[in-house]
């Protein structure tokens, strides 16, 4: 299965889980689990920055139309799609001989840098998204608590997903 097909499949799976499972779950008004943006975090290293931005925007917009909060997720996803290459540049190992993985994963980057990568983008996504929602309605304390709780539960979900579904190690080789 090539990268394009695999990512289309992932897109469908992540959006359906977000729309039909997580959005319907009612835990608490502050604790809303999010996982769909893991799709953007898992895109291959080789994707160009423009394509990354457009993919992020479309992912967010799709979720927007399902959850009827037009623009909110699209803005947050575009932000993390824009920031992602910078963080990968800082965190990924520089040695190009060792570095031959296709996409960001705990195996490719090592657990601590990978978790840092996920955490930074999660915090950015939730802060920006909650900020946009807060502009429309809510108080500052609510905004603050919501970002912390939502980040916590999203990190928990992402680590669980990472441990439950280890992606196959795909090497970038000349022969393939």
């Amino acid at each position: 299965m090539n990268d394009f097909l695999r990512n289309i499949l992932r897109f469908v799976v992540f959006i359906s889980i977000q729309v039909y499972v997580l959005n319907r779950l009612h835990l608490h008004q502050f604790i809303i689990p999010y996982i769909y943006y893991l799709f953007i975090l898992w895109l291959p290293f080789s994707v160009s920055r423009i394509v990354l931005l457009l993919t992020g925007f479309l992912t967010g917009l799709t979720l927007d139309y399902f959850s009827m909060q037009i623009g909110v997720h699209a803005a947050a996803c575009t932000l993390i799609a824009y920031i992602r290459p910078f963080i990968i540049n800082v965190l990924a190992p520089k040695d190009s001989n060792e570095f031959n993985y296709r996409e960001p994963s705990a195996k490719a980057m090592g657990w601590p840098p990978y978790l840092l990568y996920v955490l930074i983008l999660t915090v950015l996504h939730h802060t920006y998204m909650t900020f946009l929602q807060w502009l429309q309605f809510g108080s500052f304390l609510e905004f603050f608590i919501k970002v912390i709780y939502t980040t916590g539960i999203s990190m928990l979900l992402i680590i669980t997903a990472e441990l439950l579904f280890p992606r196959k190690l795909k090497f970038r080789t000349n022969t393939a």
Partner: peptide
């Protein structure tokens, strides 16, 4: 541009 489009949709 994408940010502006998203915010315009939202508003």
């Amino acid at each position: 541009i994408l940010q502006v489009v998203a915010l315009w949709f939202m508003i």
